[in-house]
Amino acid sequence: MEQKDLFKELGEIRLLMEKSSKFVSISGLSGVLIGCYALLGTLLGYYAIANPEAVINRFASGLTIPTLFLIVALLILTLSLLTGCLMARKKAKKNKQSIWNITSKSLLFAVSIPLITGGVLALVLLSQGYYHLIAGILLIFYGLALAAGSIYTFAEVKWLGILEICLGLMAVCLPDHGLMLWGLGFGVLHIIYGFIVYKKYES
């Protein structure tokens, strides 16, 4: 066997190991979009805190501010999931891969455990009135989910996760800045991450 062939063979093995164990159809641009939704939500949150009566009277009569926050958060979550899935499907189609395969299943399973735990915990805190902890808890558990799922996708996801955890811990320590840190974590970090992935893998 020629040396060139040997190198090629080893290179192909490496590539196959990557391809078979990592889900790379996550779109960078969807990260940017999701970040924008979160930033919009944060702005809305600031507006609602600054003018609670105006917001409640105009948009949501009979609701309390925490319930309004919950609705906005769920709206952002739904919109983000939808954007992420649709754009991943498009990217997978372009690369002639299926979106529902063995790696995407592993990824989903790894991510869902911390994510569901964090979600339930946030709802419990909400119902018991510990509002100041929620932003931090959401960031921390989201970061843990990313770190857990990162072995099945881009290496950048691990760093995104670690940064989200750091912001979350800060938010728990500084509850007055919770909303700002939430906006930084879910908004700004997603936009930066999306750009990096887009530049590195898609353009």
Binding site: E9, E12, I13, L16, M17, S20, Q97, S98, N101, I102
Partner: peptide, 21 residues
């Protein structure tokens, strides 16, 4: 060799996933 490469990094793999990759 390819099958073994896939199984070296994945705990388990099914027939259709092999076919795809």
């Amino acid at each position: 060799l390819q099958i073994m490469s896939v199984l070296a990094v994945n705990e388990e793999y099914d027939f259709n996933s092999f076919k795809e990759v």
